[in-house]
Simulated scan of single mutants.
Amino acid sequence: MDPDKLKQWLEMAQKFQGGNFWQSMFNTDYVKQFMNDPMFQPDGTGTEKSNMQQFWDQSGPVQTSARTSSEYPLVDIYMTPANMIVLAELPGISKNNLQLTLAGDQLTIKGFIESHYDNTTKIQSERYHGDFERTIRLPEAADTNKMNAKYGNGVLVIKLPRMENEEQNITID
């Protein structure tokens, strides 16, 4: 396998998938074993790095959590004739650690997820923890007077009534 061709393929795939996908892919045991293969090691001079190792270094540090705060929480958005409904997946979070704001068609969900075992050695860490903030663009503005949100069983349900856009005739001067 040609390391230069593999590097080109990974760079092209990264443009289509985004950096976080490939960083999480490189954090698997199989890939780490693959990267330790002599084919991908420096040429023995002690100063040069292989093409694959250079790509690895340019990717930046691999994150231990599966998502970044800009991708968390995962959301679904539904529309009915009267409402927009946003479901946010937030397991294990206290409702007191959540904050919702709405500005025009921008819904922001902020919060904090506590790490339950701070003074331990992590063997595997896929769940997101720490501060997070996600702003979601809604398909349209909502009626701010009638909004409500409920949180239960790890799911935040935000009901946003749609603005009533009654058809009006416009007079022409």
Rank of each mutant, 00 (worst) to 15 (best):
K122W: 07
N97Q: 11
N96S: 13
E71H: 02
Y117E: 15
L107R: 01
E126Y: 10
I93F: 07
S59A: 12
T108C: 06
V86H: 00
Y78I: 10
T108L: 01
E89W: 15
T101C: 02
N119M: 10
D105A: 08
V62N: 03
L87F: 12
M84N: 04
A66F: 09
V75D: 03
E114L: 13
F55A: 09
K110L: 07
M52H: 02
S94M: 07
G104S: 08
I113E: 00
L107P: 01
K122F: 08
E126L: 09
Q124R: 06
L90V: 04
Y72F: 12
P81V: 10
V86F: 06
I113R: 07
E89F: 15
S70N: 11
D57N: 10
Q63C: 05
A88G: 05
E71R: 06
L87S: 06
Y117F: 13
T64C: 11
L90C: 06
A88E: 02
T80Q: 08
A103C: 08
I123S: 14
S125P: 09
V86P: 06
N96Y: 13
I123A: 11
R127D: 14
K122L: 13
T80A: 10
L107Q: 00
S69M: 10
L90D: 00
Q99E: 13
A66G: 04
P73Y: 04
V75R: 01
S70C: 09
D118L: 14
F55W: 12
W56N: 13
E126H: 10
R127T: 11
E126R: 03
Q106H: 08
V62H: 03
Y128Q: 01
I85G: 06
K110D: 09
M79K: 11
Q106W: 00
L87N: 05
M79D: 11
Q106R: 11
Q99V: 08
F55R: 07
L100I: 07
Y128F: 12
